[in-house]
Write a protein that binds this DNA or RNA. Structure first.
Length: 937
DNA sequence: TGTCTCGCCTAG
DNA sequence: TAAGCTAGGCGAGACA
């Protein structure tokens, strides 16, 4: 009976003397956890050598006992168009670990032979498990069907060897020795088991706990699905009576830790979740176990499906943990990547994303709570329980893993690699697979020296073109953008590592990008990257079609994650080509892509401004002037001009006599998309995205749009803000609330006076703050910034550094690099940086706030940047509290703007505004809805 | 006082 | 075994 399962993890084990055996860990559709052994896969790498290859091959075979065979094969080199393949050696070793060893020794052979010329090793640094997955066209979260016989892992791997103890702990419902293995197409996701945990330590004096001295006193679990009827379970390191059924008390810490590991193995989770457990809990437990064992305690710390113990490794600042056969998922980095928040403490994140409160016990009171046996103790237990609940909820309710699972399936990398890492492993997996199929070898990862060299060069990589915006308020602006610009450029112009002309010259013409360099056309050699991209693009199209067809919510979600994953992958290849640590790095390629991009957007602008210029609307058709022929009085002429553009987008301002309806503007948008797309090589395409009824352009990368998008019934409208202070986390909420309100007045109501009035009110309210009564206001005055480096490597003073150092003085704990530090500016003299202070400290100690700073530096400058477009002066917005209401503000409107304003108050928008007021603009930031209240206290 | 540079965050 | 890329605005410290 073949066994179907989804691949969660893979590695290999050496079975006695018979060579390596691949192990695939997975979960079957029936819910059983599976370990599948695959023998007969051999490690190998390639060598390009000079001289008599037969002699080199013989010498390698004779010199190294670990070499099983050396074959002469024909391969293309990794980079550059080549007319013919080259003879190389394929060296097969007995064990995976022999590959790096022999690679390091191999240049000695060259010396022995006194060979001249270029020797180069290829694909010698691919992890064996990845080599297997790539060569067999398998990958992470892929379904496979295994033929073979059931085996007992203990007998199969064990046989009295050093693996014995591991094997005895081997955990899976069924193990199989595969004789055949094939990939199965299946959209479903196996019934995965999720476990989240969180530990509580008892620190000395409320400081940072240290595993040598501070015991772990509680561990909380959350399970999905339940574990023996428990959704949560809390382990205590002391006997306790009268607790609820989800609390398990142990005699001491050692017993608790043993229970912890036992439950993990018994529950047998696929996903081990936590919040910052990768950096804190797992290393802490590991070190604590070491410390206890050193004291003579006995702890069996198995967590892996193969019986391996808990552990972690540090690479510079980054900690990596591994649980064989499972996937360690830390919700913290996932949330960071998925949501732009002011802070990423579990408290802030739970509140913001789950609308749930974290419970808390301050470190200084922990000892007291722990030693209590009544309410305080129960409160402590509940606090522990809540933390693991929240971690699991973050992963499940926010569906944080959907995207990563889809990325694994599409790219072929293992889920753990994708959750941990960036785009590199995914791109490399795809490249290795396709290069392999086309007989092309791939370079090893560059060393530090080469990377540094490349890094210095990378200033030679030019990016996208940003058009100077027509600053001010415009009506009827079309938003168009290029669909997957860089990938489609690579496809359209056959840009690839394999098509760039380096040594061999093709016979015919070449493709010459504006940045220089030459690439062969697809007729001569179809680039591998373009063909990967084409596959991905097609797959994405199919996925989107299936999404439209399905009515099943679950399937829809999986398909949506898949198309999103494909989009991410499509866009990863360009970045990878300019990445200094890439196996395949080519500035020529990267520059070719962006240079085509730049000339493309400039051409588009000129095409729209110049050759197209105007569009004639006649009988619901949008015509070019030349198509329209003789104009009649009923024709409406729309004048076009590009108002802004960034890399792959163009904003087109439409002007006509009288008002334009959304339908009319859309006709123009669709026609423009057609005309421009037709002028481009396949598959490049300019897409008509949406209509902005009004657009406020402030500067490059700073604008706000009042967008209208067609929906089943009429038009849906929203305000979209880019780059301005409302979307920046280093400005306070007071700024974003005020600015959002100003934008609403200006964009939706077209009423500058109301905006001015509003700002005056806010300023006056702030100036008249009663710190006693309005304590809650501090929340709205908090700015945050990321601590990005060590304290001593800052050249200038920084407010968040000041605060971080204050925190260190007070608590002894320096926030770690990467933490977002909240702060407010307090009253006093001197530099702002010196007056930055921790908001909690300010609240607790009633430290006065620098009101003037908030008015002059937080509210007014961003507001002024908007209102100065309408001739409003800053001086009219601020006044001392004492002078309140003594003079009137002054608004001076330029004629043109005045016209726009008045036309917008009636006319076109009459209809829209009637329909819109209640479902007015929503500021969607990560899909959340911004509070609409102004400044309520 | 004006200019330069650092630092951060965002757009795409 | 750390890490896709560049363009760009803006505040405020540093420095002449």
């Amino acid at each position: 009976m073949p066994m179907d399962f989804q691949i969660l993890d893979a590695d290999y084990e050496v079975v006695n003397d018979s060579g390596p055996v691949i192990r695939l860990f997975g979960r079957g559709a029936d819910g059983k956890s599976v370990c599948c052994f695959v023998p007969d896969f051999e490690p190998y790498f390639y060598l390009k050598a000079s001289g008599d290859l037969h002699a080199v091959a013989r010498l390698i075979k004779d010199t190294f006992e670990q070499v099983k065979k050396v074959e002469i094969v024909e391969k293309f080199e990794p980079v550059g168009y080549q007319k013919t393949k080259k003879e190389m050696l394929r060296v097969t070793t007995r064990l995976p670990k022999d590959v790096p060893e022999i690679r390091d020794e191999i240049l000695k052979i060259r010396d022995v032979l006194r060979a001249e010329g270029d020797w180069q090793v290829y694909e010698s640094d691919i992890l064996f498990r990845n080599r297997f997955l790539i060569d067999r066209a398998l990958g992470g979260m892929v379904w496979v069907s295994a033929e073979g016989k059931p085996v007992d892992p203990v007998r199969y791997l064990g046989a009295g060897s050093a693996w014995r103890s591991r094997c005895e702990n081997f955990a899976c419902d069924s193990a199989v020795l595969a004789s055949g293995l094939k990939r199965v197409e299946n959209l479903a996701i196996a019934p995965l088991k999720y476990l989240a945990f969180d530990i509580e330590c008892l620190p000395l004096d409320g400081g940072m706990p240290s595993p040598d001295v501070s015991p772990i006193i509680m561990i909380s679990f959350s399970f999905e699905p339940e574990y023996k009827g428990h959704k949560t379970l809390i382990l205590l390191a002391k006997p306790a009576a009268g607790m609820d059924g989800d609390v398990l008390s142990c005699m001491d810490e050692t017993e608790m830790l043993n229970k912890f590991f036992e439950i993990i193995c018994e529950y047998d989770p696929d996903i081990v979740a936590g919040y910052n457990h990768q950096d804190f809990d797992i290393p802490y437990i590991t070190e604590r176990v070491k410390a206890l064992v050193a004291k003579g305690e006995t702890i069996n710390s198995v967590v892996g499906r193969d019986g391996s113990p808990i552990g972690y490794r540090k690479f510079g600042l980054i900690t990596r943990t591994e649980m064989k056969g499972r996937v360690v998922v830390d919700a913290l980095p996932l949330v960071r990547r998925a949501f732009s928040l002011k802070q990423y403490t579990l408290r802030a994140v739970s509140k913001e994303l789950l609308s749930r409160e974290k419970l808390d016990v301050p470190p200084l009171e922990m000892e007291e709570h722990w030693n209590d046996s009544g309410d305080k103790f129960r409160k402590f237990v509940d606090y522990a329980r809540r933390d693991s609940e929240l971690a699991l909820e973050l992963v499940l309710e926010l569906r944080l893993l959907d995207k990563y699972i889809a990325l694994a399936q599409v790219s072929g990398s293992l889920l753990q690699e994708i959750v941990d890492g960036g785009q590199t492993s995914m791109v490399e997996t795809l490249l290795l697979r396709e290069f392999g199929l086309k007989d092309r070898v791939i370079l090893p990862k560059p060393g530090d020296e080469l990377s540094a060299e490349r890094y210095d060069m990378s200033s030679d990589l030019k990016g996208g073109e940003v058009l100077e915006p027509k600053k001010g308020l415009l009506e009827n602006v079309l938003i168009l953008d290029y669909k997957s610009l860089y990938p489609t450029i690579m496809m359209a112009h056959n840009l690839c590592y394999t098509t760039v002309v380096t040594r061999d010259r093709p016979d015919g013409k070449t493709i010459k990008p504006p940045s220089g360099g030459e690439f062969v056309p697809p007729e001569v050699f179809r680039g591998i990257v373009p063909s990967i991209l084409e596959d991905l693009l097609n797959k994405r199209g199919d996925t989107k079609k299936r999404m439209k067809r399905t009515s099943d919510e679950n399937e829809h979600r999986v398909l949506d994650a898949t198309q999103l994953a494909i989009k991410i992958l499509l866009n990863s290849f360009y970045g990878y080509s300019g990445y200094a640590r890439a196996r395949l790095y080519s500035l020529t390629l990267a520059n070719a892509v962006t240079s085509f991009g730049r000339s493309n957007i400039l051409n588009t602008r000129d095409l729209i401004n110049g050759r197209i210029g105007k569009i004639v609307l006649r009988n619901s058709a949008a015509l070019l002037l030349e198509e329209a022929g003789k104009l009649s009085p009923q024709d409406r002429i729309v004048e076009l001009s590009v108002a802004y553009g960034d890399t792959d987008s163009v904003f087109v301002h439409c002007k006509a006599k009288g008002d334009l309806s959304l339908e009319e503007v859309s006709l123009v948008g669709n026609r423009l998309s057609e005309i421009v797309s037709a002028s481009l090589p396949d598959p490049m395409e300019l897409e008509f995205e949406s209509v902005a009824k009004r657009a406020l352009l402030i500067a490059k990368k700073r604008y706000a749009l009042w967008l209208f998008e067609p929906r089943n019934s009429g038009w849906e409208n929203k305000i979209k803000v880019k780059g301005m202070e409302t979307v920046r986390r280093d400005w306070c909420e007071l700024t974003s609330i005020t600015l959002n309100r100003v934008l609403e007045f200006v964009l939706i109501e077209g009423d500058v006076d109301k905006a001015v009035e509003h700002v005056r009110k806010v300023v006056s309210d702030v100036r008249n703050l009663d710190p006693g009564k309005d304590a809650g206001i501090i929340e709205k005055l908090v700015l945050t910034r990321t601590l990005t480096r060590k304290a001593d490597s800052y050249k200038n003073k920084q407010p968040h550094l000041t605060v971080a150092e204050n925190l260190k003085k007070r608590t002894g704990i320096m926030p770690s690099i990467g933490t977002r530090i909240p702060f407010v500016i307090t009253a006093g003299k001197g530099l702002f940086v010196d007056r930055a202070e921790d908001p909690d400290y300010v609240r607790e100690n009633n430290v006065p706030i620098d009101v003037d700073y908030y008015v002059k530096k937080q509210i007014l400058p961003p507001v002024e940047r908007i209102l100065e477009v309408f001739g409003v002066k800053m001086s009219s917005l601020d006044f001392d509290a004492k002078q309140k209401g003594l003079f009137d503000f002054e608004v001076k409107k330029p004629e043109a703007k005045k016209q726009e304003k008045s036309s917008s108050q009636k006319g076109t928008n009459g209809k829209i505004l009637e329909k819109a007021p209640e479902e007015k603009a929503r500021y969607s930031e990560n899909g959340r809805v911004e509070q609409r209240s102004l400044f309520d206290f």
